[in-house]
């Protein structure tokens, strides 16, 4: 079988923040009824995470679960295990009104790290990314310039950005331009 390759093969740009393609990430789109106990148990069995609160991402021992909308979750698991986890998830969801799909190869994932990370993203997304408003564990679906994307912040101040693979190159160039070394605005003091 052919080797899976990520959208930009680990491209990287260093400026006021470092933008790098994160490589292959396993992602499962899951829709269903959040109020059902069986649904929450199935999510927990696959990722080790609890159901995330609105607009948050819940980290688990085996992966993570992010709140996409009132009936949709994005489950993050290791790329190599995604098919096995999906099968286990479908097994755990037996009898539930739910749908799970492997969306790993439909996506590109980037990481933005460094002091200018908040500013780099804030320049291209209509979101308040100040330290008070956007905190570690917050997850937001929005747009980046002209395309849809989602991002969250981890405890080390690194953003992870998810977008469609078809616009991966656009998003990388966009974030690189936004992280240009001479483009610092300095609105978010570290």
């Amino acid at each position: 079988m052919s080797d899976p390759v990520s959208a930009l093969n680990g491209a990287r740009f260093d400026g006021i923040a470092s933008v790098e393609e994160a490589g292959l990430c396993g992602m499962i789109t899951l829709r269903g009824d959040f109020a059902s106990a069986g649904f929450a148990a199935a999510v927990n069995s696959i990722t080790g995470a609890a159901l995330p609160e609105v607009g948050r991402i819940a980290e688990g021992t085996e992966g993570a679960a992010a709140w996409m909308s009132t009936d949709e979750l994005l489950l993050m698991v290791p790329y190599a295990e995604v098919e096995a986890r999906l099968a286990a998830l479908n097994e755990a969801l037996k009898g539930e009104h739910a749908l799970a799909v492997n969306a790993s190869d439909a996506r590109a994932v980037f990481r933005i790290s460094g002091d200018g990370a908040r500013e780099t993203l804030a320049k291209v997304a209509p979101v308040d990314l100040s330290a008070e408003a956007f905190q570690p564990g917050d997850f937001r679906r929005s747009r980046m310039a002209q395309v849809a994307g989602a991002f969250w912040l981890n405890g080390e101040g690194t953003f992870t950005v998810v977008c469609f693979r078809s616009v991966g190159e656009y998003v990388f160039k966009l974030l690189s331009a936004s992280a240009h070394p001479q483009s610092a605005v300095g609105i978010y003091k570290a």
Binding site: M68, S69, T70, E72, R141, S142, R143, A148
Partner: peptide, 8 residues
Amino acid sequence: RHANGCGK
């Protein structure tokens, strides 16, 4: 519609 967001 919250098109670039939750989609609802």
